[in-house]
Design a protein around this nucleic acid. Structure first.
Lengths: 203, 203, 203, 203
DNA sequence: ACATACGGGACCTCCCGTTGCT
DNA sequence: AGCAACGGGAGGTCCCGTATGT
C-alpha cells in the first residue's frame, strides 16, 4: 500500500541528492517535489534524513548496477561494454544539462567522514559496481588480481570523468576516460596492451 | 596589518570546505576555527559565503598547483613526477585520517549547477592543474594534442582516485591510479607504452 | 485547540505594530510578548513577516470597524456617533500614554510603496472604515456622493488627528478634528451646515 | 568645505526617510545613494543615526515651511493659499508615484514614543507649519483663538490627506481635504462659514 | 576629512525531529 | 497512514557604532 509513498520519496531523494547534494536537499523540498505527504516522513524513515540518504544511495547504486549489467549483456566484449557504459553515462549527463552526474559521489564526499551510515552506503555502492565489473572481467578470462585492479581503475576513471565533465559542462573528460578505461580492460584481458582504441582488431 | 584577518579566514575556510564541504561549513564555525571576528565577515566578504568559497577554492587550487610544480621540479622525468604527485597526495589523505581529499572536488560537486562564481572557481582550479601538467608533457617532448589529452586523463585519475580513496578509507585506489597515470604519461611521451613502472630504464 | 497560537500571535503583533511600527517589531520580540513558541512561526505564517503584518492589519482593521459600528448603534444621530468615535479613540490614545494610535497608519506609511500585501491590507482597512461611515450617512439620508466624500473627509480627519495627537502627546488635535468631522457630517446630512457643534438642536 | 558632504547626506537622508521610513533606511544605503564617504559618518553625525534623523526632519520641515510661505506670498487670499499648498503637495505626491508624502509623518509615527530627539524634531516641524498658517490667518484678520484652531485643523487635514492619498495611490483624498481646509480657513476669517468652496464669492 | 577594519548583535528564514489528533 | 502543530536551533545577511591610521 503506502510503500508506494516511501518508494516515491526515495526516487525523488535520489534525484535531488544527485543534483543538489545532501545538505542542500531538505525534507520540505523533497515532499514538495515528490508530492508525498509531509506528515509521514518520520513514519517511513524513523532514522531521519540519514536513513533517507542511505536509501537514496542504495537506489542510485542499484540503477547504476543495472546499467552496468545491461551494457555487459548487450555487448559481449568487455571492452565494448565498458565503452558503452561510459558513453551512456556521459549522454545522461549532458542531456540533463550536466546535472545528472554520479548519483553517489556528491553525497559520498559530503558525508564521508561524518556519517557512518552514509559512508557505508557509499562504499557499498562503489563496491557493488566494482564487483560487477571485476566479475565480468574474470568471466572474460582475466586473473582474479588483474580483474580486481582493472575494475578499480575503471571505476576511478568513471568517477573522475563524471566529476570533471559535470564541473566543466563538457563531455570530453568522459570520452577520454572511456578510451582509457577500455585500454585498461584490454590490458587486463589480453597479453599485449592497446593503450587507446579497442583491442578487437588485433584479437 | 589589516588583510591578515581575511587571509586567515580564507585558509581556514579552505580547510573546512575540504573536510566538510560547502553547505556543512558555517560562518560561525569558520570564525570560531579561525579565531577571527564574527562581526567583520561582511566587511571582508561583501559577496557573502559565495565569495568566501571562491577565495577558498582559489587558495586550494594554488596549493595543489604548487605541489605539482614542486614534483616536476624535483623529478626530472614526468613519469616520476606524476607518481610523486599522486603519492604525496595519497599520503596527505591517509595521514589526515582520509579527510584531506581534493580541496576542490566536494565544493565543486555541491555547487556545480547552482553557483556561477563557485563553478567558475572550480573550473579555474582544474584548468590550472591540467595546464601545468600538459605544459610539462610538452616540455618533455609530447605533441600538443597528446599532452593535452594525457593531462586530462591524469587529472581524471587523480580526482577519481582521491574520491574513491577518501570514501573507502583506503590508499589502494590512489596507488592504482598513480600507476595508471604514469602509464598514460609514458604513453604520451614515448612510442611504446609501459603500463607500470618508469619508462626510463626500458628506454 | 490549535489555531489559538496563531490568533495570539496576530493579536500581539497588532499591538506591537501599532506601538513600534513594522520594522521595529521583531519575530523574537513578538513570540516573547505573546508567549508563543518561536519554532512555529514559519508554520503559522509561511509567508513570513509580511503575512503576519497583513493579518495584524486585518485584525486592527476589524477592531476599529467594530468600534465604528458600536458608536453608530449606540448613538442614533450620525453626528453624535462620529463624535463618540473620535472621543473614544482619543481616550484610548491618551490613556495609553499616546501609544495606541491608529493600528494601521504606521505600518501603512512604512510599507506603502514596498509591499503589495501590506499595502493592500492597509487599503482594505481604510476602505472598510470609510465604507461603514458612508453607509451610515446614506442611511441617515445623505446622497451617495455626499456620503462618500464626507466619509473620506471624516477618515482624513481621523487619521490626521490621531497622528498629530500621538506625536504631540496632546488630545487637542483630536478634539478639533472631532468637531470638524461632526460639522462635515452635519453638512452632508442637512441643507444648512453647522460648522461646530451638533446640528440636533437647530434641527 | 566638507560641510557639503554633510549637507548631501542630510538631503539624501530626508529623501530616503520620506520614502522608506526611519528603520528601513540604513547608513550603508544612505552613503551609497548619496555618494558620500562611509568613513566619515561618525565625524559628521557623532550622535549616530538619531542625529541624522533629526537633521533630516529639520530639513524636510524647512522645505515644507518654505512651500507654505511661497503659497501665502503668491496667493493673497489665505483660502487660495491653502488650496495651493494642498494642490502642490498632492501634485508632488502623485508625480513621484505616491512616494513623496509628508517628509515627517512616517518617521514621526515610527519613533514617536521611542526617541526623544526624533519626537522633538517631529513636533518642531508640525509646530512650525501650524505657526506659519496661524500667523497668516491672524494677519488676515482672524482672532488668535480662531487662527490657532483653524491652523491645527488645516494641518490635520493635510497630514490625513497625504496619508490616505499615499496609501491609496489616489489624489482624491487630498482634493477633498483641500476643499475642507479652505472651508475651515474661510470659516475662521469670515463671520459666516462656507463649508465647501471659496468664501470669496460671498465675501 | 576620510578610509579600513573591528566587533558584537539582531534581523528573518528555514531546518529537522517530535508529539498528539485524525 | 496521514496530518497539523510544536519546538528549539542555526542558517547567512546586514546593521550600527567604534577604533585605528592616514
Amino acid at each position: 500500500m503506502a510503500t508506494e509513498t516511501r518508494q516515491r520519496m526515495i526516487e525523488t531523494a535520489a534525484r535531488l541528492f544527485q543534483r543538489d547534494g545532501y545538505h542542500a536537499t531538505s525534507w520540505r523540498g523533497l515532499v514538495d517535489a515528490a508530492g508525498t505527504p509531509w506528515g509521514s516522513v518520520h513514519h517511513h524513515f524513523p532514522g531521519g534524513k540519514e536513513e533517507l540518504g542511505a536509501a537514496a544511495i542504495d537506489a542510485g547504486s542499484g540503477a547504476v548496477a543495472a546499467l552496468i549489467e545491461h551494457c555487459f549483456q548487450s555487448e559481449p566484449d568487455p571492452v565494448d561494454a565498458v565503452g558503452r557504459w561510459f558513453t551512456l553515462s556521459a549522454g545522461l549527463l549532458s542531456t540533463t544539462g550536466f546535472v545528472a552526474g554520479c548519483p553517489v559521489a556528491t553525497v559520498a564526499l559530503e558525508t564521508a567522514p561524518h556519517s557512518d551510515a552514509l559512508g557505508a552506503a557509499s562504499r557499498r555502492a562503489f563496491d557493488q559496481w566494482e564487483g560487477l565489473i571485476a566479475a565480468q572481467l574474470r568471466r572474460a578470462g582475466a586473473s582474479r588480481a588483474k580483474a580486481s585492479s582493472a575494475a578499480t581503475v575503471v571505476l576511478t576513471l568513471f568517477e573522475g570523468g563524471l566529476l570533471l565533465a559535470r564541473v566543466r559542462g563538457d563531455d570530453q573528460p568522459m570520452s577520454l576516460a572511456s578510451r582509457q578505461a577500455q585500454a585498461v580492460v584490454a590490458g587486463a584481458l589480453g597479453a599485449t596492451s592497446a593503450p587507446s582504441g579497442s583491442r578487437r582488431r588485433g584479437g
